[in-house]
Simulated scan of single mutants.
Amino acid sequence: MSPRIIACLCLSLTLAGCAAPVPWQHPTTPKDRWKSEWNYCVRWAEEEVGYRESVVDSNFRDYDRAQAKKRINAYVDMCMRERGYVPARPSR
């Protein structure tokens, strides 16, 4: 595998591991469907942001990664809300 592919896979796994999905709910969609909607929105957000891990060492790599994660999370939130979902309230 090329270093670029490996870097992209590492980034995807890192982002997936750091961002535990927030359960979303929809008034008419079954609860078991939110995961597929969430996955669609995550893929779409990653494509929109277009962040790619640099193979070259950079002092700003951690900053870039953090900024990309923030933008991806914002796009996912927007995507889910456009589909009629709202964040579920945590159980107490």
Rank of each mutant, 00 (worst) to 15 (best):
T28A: 09
R33F: 06
P27R: 01
V55W: 04
R4D: 14
C10H: 08
C10Q: 12
E53T: 09
S36M: 10
S12I: 10
V55G: 05
A19R: 01
A16W: 08
T14Q: 02
T28N: 03
K31R: 11
C8G: 09
G50A: 09
C8W: 05
W44N: 10
T14G: 06
W34F: 11
W24F: 15
S36D: 12
D32G: 07
K35H: 10
D32K: 07
E48P: 00
K35M: 12
L11K: 09
P23M: 08
K31T: 14
V22E: 10
P27A: 01
A20V: 08
I6L: 12
C18Q: 11
E47D: 14
A20P: 04
S54L: 08
A19Q: 05
V55S: 10
W24N: 01
E47K: 14
L13F: 11
R52N: 12
S12T: 12
C41Y: 05
W44C: 01
A19M: 07
K31F: 09
E53N: 11
G17S: 04
K31D: 15
F60I: 15
Y51Q: 01
E46Y: 03
W24D: 06
S2G: 13
T28M: 03
I5H: 03
N59R: 05
S2V: 10
V49S: 02
S2A: 09
R4F: 15
V22G: 01
P3S: 09
P27C: 00
T29R: 08
P27H: 00
